[in-house]
Design a protein around this nucleic acid. Structure first.
Lengths: 221, 221
DNA sequence: GCCTTGACTGATCGCACGATCAGCGAGAGG
DNA sequence: CCTCTCGCTGATCGTGCGATCAGTCAAGGC
């Protein structure tokens, strides 16, 4: 194991690169963030990025899965605990889905709110490798939450549960992404808040929407 | 007026460029779409893009405001009609907000669903000119709809109305953006549908969420 | 018939990009 | 003391980028 200092959780250059990549990819997009700029932000030579991650796509993928993996593990652990205890409510399920993301969004050491922008940009990119990355990172987790929603709301069919899940995620990402629009549109009444305020508002909105989808499904034409 | 053929609404090269730019900016992002690729897709020389729109940013802005302006005019016209007739319901307001976008999303001649990806990408871009473009294009319309929501839901404060508006827009954009995730996650149960099915589902979800925000606001700490 | 106007083009500029490679230097193993 | 490993670097490659510019060509006014 590489020596260079002591043992526990020292920030290595490899992690510094991922941090810098996260900030720049989120701010400027995949093509807009250059390997040169990431290297400079991380304080290393550009060639080191290629040494550790081979290509720009490799760096992006490593940066992406680091966060998504950590958050999804927490999400699924929370869901499993609730399912083991009994039948969770919609509110419980939505909170298990959103709390880990929103908490991470308020913790600069875990990427802050930048990651929300990144997911939005990545999942809407053209059909190439970025969509595959989103699918690989999120689909299995999403399927479990969709199933849990159907279990909590008997009237909710598969299609409505899927759309509902995507609605909830979209609304939450919109809330988290640091666009500054809420502050501006509300004349300062909707400033950045603590985790609990954002979470409870998102849960209230999402749970009510999901219940409505379950009791009054749209005309299935 | 430039001659070259007859009078009414002939598709000129200038419009062809905007169409090609829209498709490529949505698919690959601002930096990912090159002027060369846009020119080739439009079937014109690259220099013509600079002749008509000066810079790449100029082209992007022209392409963006063409769609957003058209859609927002329809939105506000619908809202005005409803407000003149009496006090619209939340469902009415949400429908006035979402129907023009969703209808345009199903009409390839008006940009199809690509524009949804574009808004998501643009509004989450870093603090430069792209955010200003979103603000200039959407804020005044958004303020009027937020005010209308507060009028329809007496318990809804300014901050909650603003967040609620952003939730609704985020959920709708998530539904419209052609990511293919709904189809995949639902095992094919949530395929692309007609305008009315998508709209009624979004309205049901959004209206219920907004009502819940009005009656049970999050702890304001 | 000529000249102006304006949409449009091909060639080319300098620049920044992603990627590669030979080499450096400190620490571990013998 | 030698040597091998490996994280790391500076220099450099070829490519594709946005932008520019002199020129072409048809239509319209005089």
């Amino acid at each position: 194991m590489a020596g260079h200092t002591a043992g526990t959780a020292k920030a290595t250059a490899k992690e510094d690169i991922l941090d810098a990549a996260e900030a720049l990819f989120a701010a400027r997009g995949f093509e807009g963030a250059s390997m040169r700029a990431i290297a400079e932000a991380a304080g290393v030579a550009q060639a080191l990025l290629h040494y550790h991650y081979k290509t720009k796509e490799g760096l992006f993928e490593a940066m992406f899965t680091r966060r998504s993996g950590a958050i999804n593990r927490i999400r699924l652990a929370r869901l499993d605990v609730m399912l083991a205890r009994g039948r969770p409510t919609v509110e419980d399920i939505v909170e298990a889905l959103l709390r880990p993301t929103i908490e991470a969004g308020h913790d600069p050491s875990r990427g802050g709110s930048r990651f929300a922008s990144l997911i939005l940009a990545t999942s809407t990119a053209e059909g190439d490798w970025q969509k595959g990355l989103v699918a690989r990172s999120y689909d299995s987790m999403a399927e479990r939450f969709i199933a849990a929603l159907m279990g909590a709301l008997p009237g909710l069919g598969r299609a409505e549960a899927t759309w509902g899940y995507l609605f909830v995620v979209g609304a939450a990402l919109t809330q988290m992404a640091p666009t500054g629009r809420a502050d501006r549109l509300s004349g300062g009444a909707a400033r950045d808040e603590d985790t609990d305020a954002m979470l409870s508002r998102a849960v209230i909105f999402a749970a009510a929407g999901l219940k409505a989808l379950a009791t009054a499904p749209p005309d299935d034409h």
